[in-house]
Design a protein around this nucleic acid. Structure first.
Lengths: 158, 158
DNA sequence: AACCTTTCCTTGACTGATTCAAAAGAACCA
DNA sequence: TGGTTCTTTTGAATCAGTCAAGGAAAGGTT
């Protein structure tokens, strides 16, 4: 049943042990699922987890994702119009490209270097912890389709 | 009933006439509500609209907000963990400061100048239309409370 | 001004993501 | 191993947002 996954299990278990959280099958499976499906929504995580643990409740996945987000083992992103999505790549404050047409999400490195990697023109007195950048546009595939399909059905740049 | 609001009504009506949309009481009231409550969520817009038009349905407000967003008279933003919020300031691609503690949202001018005002380090072949920046942190009030209240209950910077 | 067409609003039900709460179960410390 | 505490299951509930059909209003036409 759990033969060829030692690496994953060990990575996830080790990460959990470094927190004060208990090491449970469910949390390990959630961590693996998020690693294997970058930017997955909760539904996808549930399906993936159930491949190895068919009986997990959706609530366990919701709880795990929340808890793991709180301790910083996963990061939750939520581009406008999207449900919550999760990723395992953390700590480097990278950003995202989102395709307006097919909703593909791709990582991009932080524009300048370390968080916060940008400074607003005036900060209104805020103590700024993080700058989150989302680049909206068209992925290579969708951009080509737009060009091929007549050219002027795709309106102007914002 | 509608005595002292000529300025607002005229602004909103004029904006609507410049589109191909019909000029209706409901849409004017929605435009005024969004102007009077920057970054308001739909619930707030509904309450505000009902001050002048008690009988509007929530569906009319949802429809209006969608339609007005489509034609570009309002802009919809959705910081992670928040419901949809709307603003009347459009066309300048400004960005937002969001307080992690009280959810206050404040506008900041575009960091460099025109959209897209940032360029990712590598674009993965995307055609980029817009860069959306959200600065997360603590507003002046919440930052002060954090400092006063013992200093180490408020954890580290991300 | 009356009419007609098209677009818009109201009504009421519904969906889908997420959350709540209580009880059963599993992890970890002694 | 035994007990305590933290997790998971179960089942129901909430909340933002959507769907669909009929009635109403806007704005052009006569």
């Amino acid at each position: 049943m759990n033969g060829t996954k030692y690496e994953h299990d060990e990575d996830a278990a080790a990460a959990l042990r470094q927190t004060s959280l208990r090491v449970t099958k469910q949390r390990i499976a959630v961590l693996d699922a998020v690693r294997d499906h970058p930017h997955a929504d909760t539904e996808t995580v549930i399906r993936s987890v159930r491949e190895s643990l068919p009986a997990v409740s959706h609530q366990a996945v919701y709880d795990s994702l929340h808890t793991l987000t709180e301790v910083g083992l996963v990061r939750c992103i939520q581009p406008s119009g999207s449900v919550a999505r999760y990723e395992r790549r953390i700590g480097d404050n990278h950003h995202h490209l989102v395709c307006r047409s097919c909703n593909l999400i791709v990582d991009v490195d932080c524009t300048i270097g370390q968080a916060p990697c940008l400074t607003p023109s005036h900060d209104a007195g805020f103590v700024i912890e993080q700058a989150e950048v989302t680049f909206w546009g068209l992925c290579p595939d969708c951009a080509h389709v737009g060009v091929q399909a007549a050219g002027d059905s795709q309106p102007s740049v914002v």
